[in-house]
Structure formats: C-alpha cells, structure tokens
C-alpha cells in the first residue's frame, strides 16, 4: 500500500504526518521525495547503508564532426543549444535531458554524457526503511531522482510505504503521487491554507486518486480548511491540534508516536482509517 502525503505549501505538516504514520505501522518504508529539502531522516535517523549518485544525460558535441546544420538548435524547445562563430554551444542548465538533439544529429556529432544532479540514500532503523532523495543545489528539476526513488522500491502490497511529497502541485509532485493508492492532504486552518489545500485537491482529483484531509494545527473556533472540506464533500481523516506538547516533540526531531500516548493513538487511528479507505476504494474499483 502506497500512501502519499502532500500539501500546497511547505510547513503544513507533511513530514510530521508521514514519519508518524511510518512509526505507527509495524513495518514500513518511508520515502522522502521532498528532494529540495528532505528532512524526514532528521526524525527517523536511519543508519545509511547505501548511497547512490543520480545522473541525467546531457549532450556533448564533437566539434570535428559538427557541420553546423543547426538541426539541434532548431529542435530544442528549451533553446539549450546555440551555434555561434561556427561552434555549437551547449547550455547544460537549460537542457531538459530529452535526448532529441542526439537522436536527430545527422552526423552523430552529439553524444550523451552523464551529469550528476543529486543522490539517493538508503538506510533503516527500528523497522522503518528510510529512502531519501537529495537534489544538488542549483539543479532545476528533481524529477529524475523521484523516478529512481519510486521505481526502485517495489511494494509487496502488504507493506506500508509512505511518500513524503515536495510542497505544491507541480511536475515533481505529480511524479511522486502517480502510482500511489491514496493521498493524504495536510491543511492549515487559515484562508491561505484553503488556497494551498485547493491546489493539491485539484491535483489529486485530476489524477483520480482517492484522498482525504488531515487538518493540522487546529485551534478552537472557525477552521476555514474544515469548512472547505465540508463544502466540497472531502473526507476529513483527522484533526491534529495546535499543541505545545506536539510542537516541542517535533521541533526536537523526535517522533510523537513514540513519545506520547495521545499521539500514538491519533496516528494509529489515522493509519487504520486510511487503510480502510484504501480497501474500500479497491473493493469499489474491482467490483
């Protein structure tokens, strides 16, 4: 069972929910797809057993072979190649690694070379496998790292996998959720929170993913995110209070499930609810 945790902006509580659900299960795998600033490992403290560099293919030119036909410069939608003073110039940072220029070059002057964009760390601790994607500074897109992270981990169907998504609803989030069984949307109780919730809500609807909302940082009184869920008919899975105790545990990089009975109950319950939701959805789609 693959569960993605996502939100429209950073700081709503994706990692809080993801690491605590991972800890609430007996055996689980936590995958940090928030490759620009992965932080789940700070809580789960895995012993890193394996590290692997992730590369993408970018073009390189053999100037002896290039005859200046400009097929590649005309082809590239991102204008990553220019032809100046009888020389081909390649802008590696602009390249989106589609490989089209190499394919189209009529004289095979272009070839693929590897460019390192980041790495994956795999470790484990306390029955939780922790796989973390880390994007190098200045690199435009972490999508190749996420592809690798998610393709390498094959779930046996029973094991619980939690995918901690990057914030927002761009390509990088789409890549993170495309093969999951369920999406948990984490929302803050503000008008701004509603705006961000709506972004990810639109996304999971577009991807036709079963989903539910965890209302985080709940205070007494009006909760615009809750009202939004009621209005749209979105399942509210749980309410996490705006609580000093939880804030203290979390800011010390400890896991609430292991520190507090109250939160152990909350996250075990949440996990059960989500598991039930997934099974119900499977029953509906298979019938």
């Amino acid at each position: 069972m693959r569960i993605a945790v996502l939100s429209g902006k950073g700081g709503t509580g994706k990692t809080l929910v993801a690491v605590n659900l991972a800890a609430a299960a007996k055996d689980s795998t936590y995958i940090d797809c928030d490759v620009e600033e992965p932080n789940g490992h700070l809580f789960l403290k895995p012993e890193v057993v394996q590290e692997e560099e992730i590369t993408v293919k970018i073009p390189a030119v053999n100037e002896q072979l290039c005859m200046g036909c400009r097929t590649c410069t005309y082809f590239c939608r991102f204008n990553a190649l220019a032809y100046i003073n009888d020389k081909l110039k390649i802008f590696a940072d602009v390249c989106h690694c589609c490989g089209g220029c190499v394919l189209l070059c009529p004289v095979e002057a272009l070839s693929d070379i590897d460019k390192v964009i980041g790495k994956i760390q795999k470790g484990a601790k306390d029955n939780i496998n922790v796989n973390t994607g880390i994007l190098d500074f200045g690199v435009e897109s972490g999508v190749p790292i996420i592809k690798k992270l998610l393709s390498e981990y094959v779930s046996d169907g029973k094991n619980l996998t939690l995918i901690d998504c990057p914030p927002g609803s761009a390509c990088i989030v789409m890549e993170s959720i495309k093969d999951v069984d369920y999406c948990i949307l984490v929302a803050e109780p503000t008008v701004f929170g509603v705006h961000n919730l709506n972004m990810v809500y639109e996304l999971v609807k577009l991807f036709n993913k079963p989903h539910g909302v965890v209302l985080n940082k709940c205070l007494e009184g009006e909760n615009p995110a809750e009202q939004f869920c009621i209005k749209k008919g979105i399942k509210i899975l749980d309410r996490i209070p705006f609580d000093h105790e939880l804030g203290t545990i979390n800011s010390n990089a400890r896991i609430a499930v292991r520190e507090s009975e109250k939160y152990q109950k909350l996250f075990v319950d949440l996990l059960q609810k989500v598991t039930k939701e997934v099974h119900q959805h499977e029953a509906v789609t298979h019938s």
Partner: peptide, 18 residues
C-alpha cells in the same frame, strides 16, 4: 521568435542577433 519560448528565450534571441 524567442518571445514565446518555453525556456531559454535569451539564448534564442541572442542567436538571432548573432
């Protein structure tokens, strides 16, 4: 023609200046 590019507009515009 670079004005509508998805990316790298500066590169394409500069190419046409060259």
């Amino acid at each position: 023609s670079a004005a509508a590019s998805q990316g790298g507009a500066g590169i394409k515009a500069a190419q046409s200046i060259v």
